[in-house]
Design a protein around this nucleic acid. Sequence first.
DNA 1: TACAATACGGAGGCACCCTCCGCTTTATCA
DNA 2: TGATAAAGCGGAGGGTGCCTCCGTATTGTA
Lengths: 192, 192
Amino acid sequence: MGSTPLPSTRPTRADAARNYDLLVTAAREAFAEHGTDTSLEEIARRAGVGIGTLYRRFPNRIALLEAVYIDEIQSVCDRAYGFAEKLEPFDALAAWLRSFVGYGVSKKSLAGELTAALGKDSPFFQSCKVNVQEAGQLLLDKAKASGDVRPELELMDIMRLVGGITMGRDMEPEEANRLLDIVLCGLRPARS
Amino acid sequence: MGSTPLPSTRPTRADAARNYDLLVTAAREAFAEHGTDTSLEEIARRAGVGIGTLYRRFPNRIALLEAVYIDEIQSVCDRAYGFAEKLEPFDALAAWLRSFVGYGVSKKSLAGELTAALGKDSPFFQSCKVNVQEAGQLLLDKAKASGDVRPELELMDIMRLVGGITMGRDMEPEEANRLLDIVLCGLRPARS
DNA sequence: TACAATACGGAGGCACCCTCCGCTTTATCA
DNA sequence: TGATAAAGCGGAGGGTGCCTCCGTATTGTA
């Protein structure tokens, strides 16, 4: 999450930075709890901040959604680097992919509203994609290097597969995990 | 909790029936022009009807969307039977499938809002599906009987393929038609 | 400490969804 | 045909949501 990245003439005031974080946190929690259509008034209330403060920071609803989404993307990337450090190559990749499944609900509706507003190929999504790809590529390359994943596989194909799993409506986490297991098996080289 | 003892249900009044049609027509046009989020006030205005009249007929926004959607499904089915009468079997099937492509824009957002509200497997969608399947099956069976389509093909697979074409974002009609041509070729029996 | 830049907060404008209820139109029946 | 009840009509207004504006409070600097 982190403070506002604004290297401008004067340093950001302490209260402003604090409120920024409060708002993004409140928004993320509210979206997870009550869905993407939570009112901005409710979010400002949760953050203990006036509605005017919210709107100075985020000129409209979409801007707030963007901030929360970027926050989520960041944590997806962070998880990748965390797993890469602590787990064996294949397990790290598996854990990362598994962490996608089930967290889809609020993120899916977030992504849905954002694509509706910005377009799927907007610069915003492009840049999110780049970051996730970079993190995923690290995991995949390590797993290939250790011989646990077939070298000819492409990251984007794997992510599309896993993305397809999370997109299924009314998908039980258990069912999704079974599908994911199949995909994970499919990544391994043929036994000799 | 008796059924009404009076058998004399009065017929729908002429003005009521007229206004119903006016509203559905206005809604369909407005959705096609300005998207699914057109306000109900705007639709009532277009239909030349008070907002109260709209709400008596359609207790909420979803009900109106349903009516328009059913209307579209009906016309999809009608087209199928029309083509079946006027065209050769394969051409009829092809024309019907082609009529899907390009009309996806407003229908897609309609279906999107409806699934969000009702669920993909709601009775409403089930019944829509049944009707479309019945119409499509007629076309497919005729095309199979005339030897223009391989007998082992399933209607649902074909419809999923074509549905997939229309789902692509930013798909040019021209591009969609090319993809459809490939699918249509794929339906024909292997040449001897 | 004093002052200017910056931030805060909520009242209020506008649009939308939906309800309520007094007035109008229609179908029926003597 | 004309009277009458049932059915339908329409729009004011309540509730809520998004967003703007501006007077007041806070913060960093000299």
